[in-house]
Design a protein around this nucleic acid. Sequence first.
RNA 1: GCCGGUGUAGCUCAGUAGGUUAGAGCAGUGGAAUCAUAAUCCACGUGUCCGCGGUUCGAAUCCGUGCACCGGCACCA
Length: 580
Amino acid sequence: MNADAKFTRTLVTSALPYANGHIHLGHIAGAYLPADIYVRYLRLKGKPVLYIGGSDEHGVPVTLTALKEGSSPKDVVDRYHEANAEAFADLGISYDLYGRTIWDLHADTTQRFFRALDAGGHIERQEMVLWYSEQSDMYLPDRYVKGTCPRCGYEDANGDECENCGAQYAAEELIEPRANIPGDTSRPILKPSAHWFLKLRDFKDDLKAWLDSHPDWRANVRGIAYGWVDDLRDRCITRDTDWGIPVPVDDPEAQNKRIYVWFDAPIGYVTNTRQWGVEAKDDAAAWETWWKDPSTRLVHFIGKDNIPFHAVIFPAMLMGQGDFIVADNVVGNEYLNILNRMTGKAEKGSKSKGNMISVRDFLTRFSRDALRYYLCAIMPESRDAAFSWDEFLNRYNGELCDVVGNFVHRSLTMTVKNFDGVVPEPGPFDAEDQALLDSLPEQLDGIAQAFDQFRFRLAVERFIEMGRRANQYFDTKQPWVTRKTDRERTATTLYVCCQVVRVLCAAMAPFVPDGAAKLAETLGIEVFVGGPDGGPDSWDAAKTPLPAGTPLQPPVVLFPKLDKDYVAEIAERHARGEAL
RNA sequence: GCCGGUGUAGCUCAGUAGGUUAGAGCAGUGGAAUCAUAAUCCACGUGUCCGCGGUUCGAAUCCGUGCACCGGCACCA
């Protein structure tokens, strides 16, 4: 909680999305938006913070996609890397670097990790029996084998689990196996193969001690992590494929194998930090401060499917390096589902159901502030949440536009019209003026505290509450009435409102950066900077009142309201399964 | 099957050192106001706090158990 004492900088990562498909709203709400909000908050506070992300581009599914569409794995990952990087940029996810795991630098980092673990005796060669296609002359990784489910008889079951009945089984239990390769009609056979395993058990005590030292983590993360740590097994970290990073061992059996994508993916955080150092600092060693200095605070943002990797496996890999830090927090979110309007029930977003909402498409219709606001307001922090078009409309219009946006607008419009476009000179403050002014630092601190605890929904709630209190004050003071009778009273009221607006501007910046930027311009406030080297504390600076006489630009609408009919129309089209 | 998480008003949720009549927003009803993005403000809640059992002077809050939903369970990312 009190990170300040122990840490001088923060390294934030968001799960590397798999470059085998487009990112959708579920990904955003779980791993990217919360991280971005947190990072923007720290930057605003002037804290040194580095935000690293990138594409995860290896692995068998990519080769399968390529096989099916008749292209190459490189084509596939190039396409999705570009599309996803663009979607993140459009959403305002403010990475310091968004990298790629196909970079040569990444092979280097990954092999270094592998070698260090190997040298420490944490990697072990084992023989195992796998499906092999004689026609294609290759071992068949799980996804490459289809067959009949031994439990329910479903004929299109995967190599290790059945989509139909959910059963999981050993590969050799599969009935009527066949290669999932176009043109391969041979029947796979079982054949021995050597693979390399990470001895997770070596790290059991360290992992446990580490988890024990972080009782403040989210319950879902702790629960799953302890479940794994209490029963650690060796984990295979190689695959029979040619799409990935070569296994750095001197063994002919390793020639046709590559490092398992899940081993190299989290190492991408390290690689991309290295690349950032080279690009931004022209310093090939800059990354080490961020990964080896114990005064660096490492925070991972992920969806719950990623918890075992970030709370157990990757930390073990880091521990095995000897001189790396491990995460101070693993912020794991639940899932964001999609509300089905017809049934009124939340369902998983899936391609086959045709209910996915792509980020790119969404942003062609609605502002990113609107999306960021809504997703943050319903963020699946402790249980699954569901995206609903009706709720999207109601919460964005009813809270951000009507409560906060409108307060800002009514305050500034009246000030500019009646006081020559400057913050008015106030008269004596009465009890209500003083109470509201005094509450501002507390209210801002309340939001900061919520961010510090990764409680983003609470932060949104407190932010809107600030707007509600301000509106109450405005209505109580009735400046539109006093304007005709008591200029000093009106000046005082609007002076106070300007101070609220100024605080709101800082408070909204992490959530809705575009609205905040517009408002900052209206108020003539510095645009917030900050980053890996830190900067001025613009957050606390918001607690200092804008002086009377500060010139104001004519206000613009920060958050335009959404048209109800238009949203309804989009919702209808979505419900009909039209591509969105 | 084993393990973890969640289950509070019509809807979305807050609420653990256990303690006065369990809260907020939305929706609904009535009213006020008209500066403002037809935006705001005020008033109005008879809820089995998932069920059952237990600990306690007292439990939404602790323990046990059952149910529902979501997820993890060793090579699926």
